[in-house]
């Protein structure tokens, strides 16, 4: 009862209220749909992140415990998990030092000390000191000790204040080229790893297109042609390819296509020669315009592919998905679909 009926009842009631909220002009229902339900969702989503993290930890620990395939990587995952947790929740790792009341004649000397201590440019520091009486040194210190050490070096020139960055703000704080421990993890571990994984796609796409884009039938030819047009049309180099050149290639390709269908070679050659002659005369008359004829210009062709066939296809898919969502939602609301309860 508790495990199945109550969750089902909650889903049915909330689903019906949310659905009818769009059809009835009732302030209470409207308020629930627009405000309360989304806040509920936000709260549940926040808890879901917590549960997701625990689940990840549990799975990785189980993998290590059972010594499943590649369990060694799970050790890294667990260590990374705790390291990020430590830097995010337990260790702030972000302190700033501000300096005030420095005499003008000492600016150059102080700038030298700060520049050495923070690996910054002396001129930049001097300009900062001259512009502000209360100057924040452009560096985030990961340890309080580090901040204090520089503060002591500067204490004879003016008043120094060491301030911890606020919890929460410490995640993204950045001064100069330095930040908190969490910022360091994001910038120097997560970012390169993530970028590397994504960059590998280029190599796989190249290899896959080389092997898969073959003119086997009409559909494959369409896919290949659209692929080539998009690849060239989207980049500046595509704008540099003359549409007349593409036009001549097109006529020759058409000749190759019709050649097996026409037995008399003279007819095929005549068609190709006539096509080339017409295009040449057209080019001479129009002064070989670099963007016309548009039908052979890659950027225009790719725009047409995006604006017409792609839009039509995407709309068809979206309408299909929409109808599917309506159907599935209705089944959930009336209690027919119970897979979210773990039922098959």
């Amino acid at each position: 009862m508790m495990k199945r009926q109550i969750p089902l009842l909650i889903v049915i009631v909330v689903g019906l209220i949310t659905l009818f909220g769009h059809f009835f002009s009732n302030q209470g229902i409207q308020n629930f749909v627009d405000n309360d339900s989304t806040q509920w969702y936000d709260i549940i989503a926040s808890f879901a992140i917590f549960l997701g993290a625990l689940n990840l930890l549990k799975l990785q620990l189980m993998k290590i415990y059972k010594k499943q395939n590649n369990w060694q990587y799970s050790i890294l995952a667990v260590l990374g998990f705790f390291f990020a947790l430590f830097a995010g929740f337990l260790y702030r790792g972000a302190y700033t030092v501000s300096l005030s009341g420095v005499a003008v004649e000492n600016h150059q000397e102080v700038a030298g000390i700060i520049a050495t201590g923070t690996h910054n440019n002396v001129a930049l520091i001097t300009a900062g000191l001259e512009g502000n009486d209360d100057y924040t040194i452009p560096m985030v210190f990961m340890t309080e000790g580090g901040a204090e050490a520089l503060g002591e070096d500067l204490s004879s020139y003016g008043a120094t204040v060491i301030s911890p960055v606020q919890w929460g703000a410490h995640l993204t704080v950045k001064l100069g080229n330095s930040g908190s421990l969490f910022w360091w993890i994001f910038n120097y571990i997560f970012t390169p790893l993530s970028a590397t994984m994504f960059a590998l796609l280029a190599f796989f796409v190249a290899s896959a297109s080389y092997r898969a884009f073959r003119i086997r039938n009409f559909e494959a030819t369409l896919l290949l042609s659209a692929g080539i047009i998009l690849m060239l049309g989207r980049v500046p180099v595509g704008q540099m390819i003359s549409p007349w050149f593409v036009g001549f290639i097109f006529i020759l390709a058409m000749g190759a296509v019709i050649a097996p269908m026409v037995k008399n070679k003279f007819i095929t050659v005549s068609i190709v020669v006539a096509g080339i002659a017409i295009l040449t005369v057209w080019g001479v008359l129009t002064g070989w315009d670099s963007t016309r004829p548009a039908i052979f210009y890659f950027p225009v062709l790719q725009e047409w592919i995006f604006n017409v066939p792609t839009t039509a296809g995407a709309r068809a898919i979206m309408i299909g998905i929409g109808l599917g969502i309506v159907g599935t939602s209705f089944r959930i609301i009336i209690g027919l679909e119970r897979s979210f309860l773990g039922e098959k």
């Binding site: 280029a202 796409v205 190249a206 297109s209 080389y210 092997r211 884009f213 073959r214 003119i215 290949l224 692929g227 080539i228 690849m231 060239l232 989207r234 980049v235 500046p236 180099v237 595509g238």
Partner: peptide, 23 residues
């Protein structure tokens, strides 16, 4: 942009070459 342009050109060249050898 130059890097992306050349990468696209290389991929297109591979596709064309792949089709020639296929035929």
């Amino acid at each position: 942009m130059a890097a992306q342009s050349f990468a696209h050109l290389v991929i297109v060249a591979f596709i064309i070459f792949g089709n020639i050898t296929y035929f």
